[in-house]
Design a protein around this nucleic acid. Sequence first.
DNA 1: CGCAGGTGTGCTCATATGAGCGGGGAGGCA
DNA 2: TGCCTCCCCGCTCATATGAGCACACCTGCG
Lengths: 324, 324
Amino acid sequence: MEPSTNAYGPAQLVLTASIARRYYVDGRSKVEIADEFQLSRFKVARLLDHARSSGLVRIEISHPGSIDLDLSARLQESLGLRRAIVVDTPEEDPAALRTQLGKAAADLLSEIVTADDVLGLAWARAVTAMTEQLTSLAPVPVVQLTGALTRPDVEANSVELVRHTARLSGGPAYLFYAPLVVPDAATARALRQQPEVAEAISHFESVTKAVVGLGSWTAGQSTLFDAMDEKAREQLHRRGVAADISGVFVSADGEAVQSRVTDRVIAISAAQMAAIDEVIAIPYGMAKVQAVRAAVRSGLVNGLVTHSPLAKALLDETSLASDG
Amino acid sequence: MEPSTNAYGPAQLVLTASIARRYYVDGRSKVEIADEFQLSRFKVARLLDHARSSGLVRIEISHPGSIDLDLSARLQESLGLRRAIVVDTPEEDPAALRTQLGKAAADLLSEIVTADDVLGLAWARAVTAMTEQLTSLAPVPVVQLTGALTRPDVEANSVELVRHTARLSGGPAYLFYAPLVVPDAATARALRQQPEVAEAISHFESVTKAVVGLGSWTAGQSTLFDAMDEKAREQLHRRGVAADISGVFVSADGEAVQSRVTDRVIAISAAQMAAIDEVIAIPYGMAKVQAVRAAVRSGLVNGLVTHSPLAKALLDETSLASDG
DNA sequence: CGCAGGTGTGCTCATATGAGCGGGGAGGCA
DNA sequence: TGCCTCCCCGCTCATATGAGCACACCTGCG
């Protein structure tokens, strides 16, 4: 037998509403309310319970800014994330969206990075957008986590990104000039032994907070995918790769995928990334739903900055899965 | 070394939102929340305080039916009423509005009338509308409080109204055939001595709950006004009559107005009405704002069933804290 | 370098609150 | 009528909560 139905007359309803007002809006205690309405405090408590369970009082969480706090909290909780920031914007243009998410991510980073941290930054357009919006940062070492992919439509590369952030922070920068992916494993090995690259890599294990790129293993949804030869794409696809996290390949069920292609990538390894306390990604666009799920499931990514459509899709997916 | 937390960054906001969810929506205790989030319960309490004071959590009181509970509660509180039911309807057609308010009033009456009560009913279109919607009522005596005004556009009269209600209730009916207003005091005296009238009157003092009509002393806003001769209208107007409560005249400052005209009315007296525990009126239309204020101020009417525009106007008037 | 003011945190203790229990009234049924 | 059952109510007692206090840390100033 559930409550909620109109077994209660209007007088009862209005009484309940009055009490709910006193309690929730005016913040009075139940004892005070009981005195005022000549009821026992138990009756007041029961009426309030009923009011809540029957949906008579509805509590909304909102705030003037662009962040949908309620959605953020639900996403964070639902996916078991350390952080989730959902920006509520009607924006659909990818570049403008990147800027908005970049601002939110920059604010987040300013807030959570303390002097004890070591910050890792991967190359990604979204990460670049974030650093462009960054205005203050505790003085921390900034470590480049991946090589750069230079694309005609993007002038910034991972080196500028790291340098700029380190300058803002006031901490040391560990950066290097190398591409994200090279034609063969031998070249990659050679590159990794270059002094700057080796030094950056040596700092990977001390990184405590990182911001990474997140791609879906599909054309146009991963810079790395787009940069690769057809053979490599196909090989990784056959291995079940659903997402790439700045060069770390992850399958739909959240397992890191090792492959020959992995050896050709100049980037932090899955194990090293797993050791980082907070890894934040900034995904957007509905095409990335499954990639985000894979990345989160892997445990490698535990922070998200995204926009509401993607957040809602993630929540829907999750609740469907748990309903089944 | 703990965070040099920037004023309130997004992470803090989301944390607060999460906690607010847990507390308000899920109804967990602060101690539980503190354990879950690894915070002291004091910190949780402070975050919640902040969330409420900064408007981050907003509490709405609403319910699926047609009654605006929040407005009802506010009206009841603001005017110091025993009951207030505000029906939220866009309806403007008086007849349809009467039906809706009648339904709400009927529900209210069904709820609040117990076997110990004695119900008094005055003649009024709104009261008729209520009785038409009445489907159940505790077995109580039903007492006719006023004579009837027969109008061409209304077929029901106070006798039918009382008889119908008593039949539904199962209790005795004390009713009589007489007009509400007669041409002179002598006729009124004679009528009052008629056995049925006298018996009904003898029950006035035992009435515990009554539903009355409420008119503004203006053309078209009071059936009694419309039924009276110009001389009587004018006399009462000069005496400052702002409202008639089923034949009881009340000035704007809430004083009962005695007049020669009063003697010509076959209805419950001001003193007798004042002795009734609950007197409910069902006013509607913006023209009645001042009449309602007068009636409520007099203390004779302590229950209202009305629609939201009038309720809002009454609240606005009251919050202005000045009268006209 | 030391000191005062401000802020944020967690403590104590009195009070408010929740869970569970038993009493008693209303209504159904023999 | 008498009994039974369900439901509503207010109590007890353990727990949660709020107000105020003390302390640590930061920061600006002499």
